[in-house]
Design a protein around this nucleic acid. Sequence first.
DNA 1: AAAACCAAGTTAATTAAATCACAAAATGAA
DNA 2: TTCATTTTGTGATTTAATTAACTTGGTTTT
Lengths: 208, 208
Amino acid sequence: MEKVISKATMSRFPTYLKALRQMALEGKQNVLSSELYEVTGIQDTTIRRDLTYLSKDENFGKPGKGYSVKHLIDGLSEVLGVGLESPIILIGVGNLGSAILKYNRWQYTVGKIVGCYDMDRNKEGELFGVKVHHIDDLEKTFPEDCEIAILAISQNIQETVDRLMDLGVKGIVDFTHSHFTVREGIEVKPVDVVAAIQELALKIHSKR
Amino acid sequence: MEKVISKATMSRFPTYLKALRQMALEGKQNVLSSELYEVTGIQDTTIRRDLTYLSKDENFGKPGKGYSVKHLIDGLSEVLGVGLESPIILIGVGNLGSAILKYNRWQYTVGKIVGCYDMDRNKEGELFGVKVHHIDDLEKTFPEDCEIAILAISQNIQETVDRLMDLGVKGIVDFTHSHFTVREGIEVKPVDVVAAIQELALKIHSKR
DNA sequence: AAAACCAAGTTAATTAAATCACAAAATGAA
DNA sequence: TTCATTTTGTGATTTAATTAACTTGGTTTT
């Protein structure tokens, strides 16, 4: 009997992982749900409930002692697909694309950008150790088993998305400022500065 | 009696706005909730309910006809604080910071980056038309009425956040990969590629 | 070894969000 | 003008998520 992890819980996991890694770096061995609350602002009882999804086996958290930071990191990493080493491609090597690519040596791996694509022929070659192809060669050079694409372009967006889906991409990290549609079952995760600022502005505003 | 806008609704507004702007660009005058569903994947009934938060006055949506794209954009823009022209500062002008700054000429303004700060003295001067100060001069040069800061640094994070809060910053757009704590009432909006990929990986995974 | 304590885990209650189902309103055709 | 059609807007309902209350098991102290 598989427990199904709720959306809300899922969206909190990365937060926990981030906080725990910081703690691990500081040499912390054990952590209480109340301490995680201090750091994340998420209610301790919510945290404990969330963490039960990880504890397939015995004693994850010990009463009176807390959780082992290491165990939590391991559990979260597993469920979050960290270390999955799944190949990721990046579409668009402009300013933003480059910045993302530079980040590719992520502190804690969630996969690796194995190829980039751009519509500018001048960009073909290599960048930060990753091959840059022309977008026309997408189908020819598409990496096997690639399921995640990062979209950092501003033109031909829908067309590109369609091609990606045809190639079997299942998840898109969306840095574009435009809207596009995807087929049933394809996940899109927008990452948008403007939207972030808008939400902030609204929240700050609505407090008065 | 003020209607209080729910968190969930709030987080969908930027999505609507994005979609509607695309439609406006394409010359669309009216839009049905069912059409917005097609584009956003959000249930039409949810959309209609969300939009009621905008309709302070009469006939926003007309039965049999739909909503005026323009009216919706206006309403959303207002509630989202678009065109607020509030001053925003950017901390960290590295690769990512530069990319964000370049985007500053946002298609639809939500405010403007009026100043940047970096710990590298060599970066002092101007970049994409915006003044770059040394981080030591933060207090000296902090723009009046600035409530939002974009954080794109990788060092001295907590210290910087503390200084920002002391200066009256109410919202932080967080591009760092580290955890920091804020005082009660300060909003943090994380924007994180790694977290996005992790969530995607998890969602894709959990479907099998 | 017993007592006292502490914090995880869990069941139950509450609150928030999404969806359903339908009534009312505008439109357009006959 | 009237009637069928379409689509909004909103109570009512269901579902999901959070929070509160309590139980249990492990730890530490005496």
